[in-house]
Simulated scan of single mutants.
Amino acid sequence: MSQTNQTRVTEFILLGLSEDNQTELLLFVLVLGVYLVTVLGNLLLISLVLTDSSLHTPMYFFLCNLSTADLFFSTNIVPQALVHMLSKRKVISFIGCAAQLLLFLIFGCTQCALLAVMSYDRYLAICDPMHYSLIMTGRLCCLLALGCWTSGFLVSIVDTTFILHLPYQGDNKIAHFFCEAPAILAVSSGDTRSTQMAIFLMGVVILLAPVSLILVSYGSIIVTVIRMKTTSGRLKAFSTCGSHLLVVILFYGSGIMTYMTPKSSKEQGKLVSVFYAVVNPMLNPLIYSLRNKDVKKALGNVEMYFPS
């Protein structure tokens, strides 16, 4: 027992994205730029939704929650990754790694649920506009948002508990730039089959179930749009849903590739992780801002109050 206690891992070494110092320096500049745009973009979108009365609708309420989750999701990972890119020894304590894993799962799983709820909101707005305001009340919106955050917390607790329950002795080098579940499992000294099954089942709950709801919602939306008699009505409906659908494809595509498909190479896994952990949180506010007339109008109102 004493030998086991002595050899138990108390810290991990994150190998990062590259072993070459010049490549790491270049990545530092690129990732820092992406992170700054992520923070500014999401904070701007949150501020617009909170301050502009024209954006006080269910759609933008959920978008505000999504941007909040994006902001914390990225901040949980990127700042430490940036520090490690300039460090020779990329060390993170066992407790720090556990905390990063837990927060990563909370915010990531919450985004999954929020994107599904947003698709349901678009379904009601387009397929049942007469009853939309009666169904999507402020109380229901708050309950749905609370349900999204709660589901993210519960799923993350289950996954994190299974992962941390495994023994970690000897090997402490994680071939990744942050503490992600598949990378941590790779260095465990115990049998990971039950943990992998638990993660897969949680993936079905938080990834495949919301995707199914999104597919049903958008199937109904497409049928409704096709039946519209006017071209302007079709264009308005597609412009309303286009931004959300693009975000769904980017986020769920990378998430399913990581957690619901057979194991890929370590380099390919890291590349996918860079996309959804670093790049995707930056793209969301840009996509919604550039493709949405309401957000553009709100930005215009800001410019009127603060002329250059």
Rank of each mutant, 00 (worst) to 15 (best):
F94W: 13
K296Y: 12
T160D: 01
L115N: 01
F73I: 03
I256T: 10
L32V: 06
L201A: 10
M304D: 06
I174V: 15
V216T: 06
F177S: 03
I206V: 15
C112H: 10
M260H: 01
L271R: 11
G170W: 05
N284S: 06
L245V: 08
L17R: 13
L245Y: 13
F238T: 08
L103D: 02
Y218W: 13
K270V: 05
S53E: 15
L50F: 14
G33K: 04
L55H: 06
M228V: 08
I249V: 12
Y168R: 05
V295E: 07
S243F: 03
G233K: 11
S67H: 07
Q80W: 12
H131S: 11
N76T: 13
Q100P: 00
T150P: 00
T258V: 09
L213E: 13
V34S: 02
G16L: 09
L144Y: 11
K173W: 06
M282D: 00
S194P: 00
V278C: 12
L86Y: 09
V31R: 07
V158N: 00
H84W: 14
L15K: 14
C112S: 07
G190E: 12
M202L: 10
S273K: 06
A277T: 14
V247I: 15
K236E: 13
A186S: 14
V204C: 11
I226N: 07
S151F: 07
Q22M: 14
V247M: 06
K263P: 00
I157K: 02
G219M: 10
V91M: 10
A145R: 08
L32S: 15
K293S: 13
L143F: 10
F177L: 02
V205C: 12
T261E: 01
L146T: 14
S264E: 02
F61T: 09
Q6P: 04
I174Y: 04
I222E: 03
I46K: 07
N76W: 02
V247K: 03
M136R: 13
L290K: 01
I206S: 14
M85W: 11
E24W: 07
V279I: 15
L144I: 11
R89G: 00
S133C: 04
F28I: 05
A175P: 00
T240Q: 14
F62G: 07
G96Y: 05
C127H: 01
T195P: 00
I214R: 04
I287V: 14
T23S: 12
T160W: 09
F12E: 05
I226T: 05
S151C: 13
V295Y: 04
A113M: 12
I221E: 09
A198N: 02
M85H: 09
L44Y: 09
L299T: 06
C179S: 15
C141T: 14
C112D: 11
T7H: 11
V187C: 04
T10S: 15
S189C: 13
A125V: 01
A125R: 13
V279P: 00
P307G: 05
L101I: 02
A181M: 06
L114E: 06
G233N: 13
L245A: 11
Y120K: 07
H131G: 00
A298S: 14
F251P: 01
L215V: 15
M282H: 00
T261V: 08
L245S: 01
F104M: 05
T38A: 05
D121M: 06
V78R: 05
L82D: 08
L17V: 08
V223G: 00
M257V: 01
D52I: 01
I77P: 03
